[in-house]
């Protein structure tokens, strides 16, 4: 049985703010199921003593010294903004107070 079904895809699409038609949901559920199943077969090979891989590159602690570097002007920062006012990005009011 596939680890991902049509309802899962619809739920993810909603969370990701992606509008999908019924056809697209059907097709995507099938395609994602193949991918998820493929990943699952890799998991079967890896034993319980192998930790999950979060990164493919064998590097750690790539760190930066705490020194101020490159910074934009407000004008540069706002240059790609659809709308701006008083040096700030102007966005539609969104009713969620977090």
């Amino acid at each position: 049985m596939a680890a991902i079904n049509r309802d899962d895809v619809a739920h993810l699409a909603q969370l990701a703010h992606i509008e999908m038609s019924a056809d697209e949901l059907d097709r995507m559920a099938g395609e994602l199921a193949v991918i998820v199943d493929s990943v699952k077969s890799v998991s079967e090979v890896a034993g319980a003593d192998i930790p999950a891989t979060s990164h493919p590159i064998p590097l750690t602690n790539v760190l930066r010294e705490d020194v101020v570097g490159h910074v934009l002007t407000a004008g540069q920062a706002l240059s790609g903004a659809p709308d701006a006012q008083g040096g700030r990005f102007r966005v539609p009011a969104i009713l969620e107070e977090d």
Partner: peptide, 14 residues
């Protein structure tokens, strides 16, 4: 590496 400073002009520490 942008500055972490409170109270500056908007969008000047990015």
């Amino acid at each position: 590496s942008a500055p972490n400073v409170f109270g500056d002009e908007p969008n000047t520490n990015v």
